[in-house]
Design a protein around this nucleic acid. Sequence first.
DNA 1: ATGGCAATGTTTCATTGA
Length: 258
Amino acid sequence: MRIATWNVNSLKIRLPHVLDWLQRHPVEVLAVQETKLTDDKFPSAALAEGGYGAAFIGQKTYNGVAILTPLAMPASDVTIDIPGFADEQKRVIAATVNGVRVVCVYVPNGQSVESEKYVYKLAWFQALRDWLAEEAKAHPRLVVLGDWNVAPEDRDVHDPKAWEGQVLFSEPEKAALKAIEAIGFHDAFRLFEQPPKSFSWWDYRMLGFRRNAGLRIDHILLSDALKPLCTACVIDRDERKKEQPSDHAPVIATLTLD
DNA sequence: ATGGCAATGTTTCATTGA
């Protein structure tokens, strides 16, 4: 079973990329962030023509998440949002696929460490942690994946000195991600040897991709039970080379289920 | 220290992202 995450930065603009990518990477789960679409505009028919069904929740302009699965492997028990956490912003969708509980997250960006949005980000993280602690008990086979908007370690940042204390790399954000891992989750990417300077996002500006001036902020977290079943995890940086790309690249984990 | 790039919405620029 292959499980992927991709912040597409507008599913309207990126729909051709997504359809093309799914043809070349026929994963069983694609968790999508930043669809930026209200539900009435979600391209269900086009995805179905490409062989994929979707569970989704969106809003105008910002946020919006979806879980895509092959039509033959439909998502069940779909839930949205973090239970008990009042939030207008559509950032979480969960579903069961092939016996695996999948939680797709679009963690708030935070804007800057001085911002109100940073306060919201940390509160959001706390609510996510509390909820996932319960979910992990209910669903041993649990994967939480998406755009986490946090680079966990120095090696996940092209210039850790320059990014020190900045949003996406501040200590409270790293601690918030660690607190979730402490429930019993494992960064699939770091289960394997990886090329140095592996990133999943590059700024559109300043030739970010060409200079490989990026961050690794898109993560696939596997529960204790799924960790030993994971055989690979890669970032598809080729996708970022294409015409009119998302600023994020897909991340793909392979699991060997019984 | 600053700006640069992309997407969206109602535009002819403001906001947000990361």
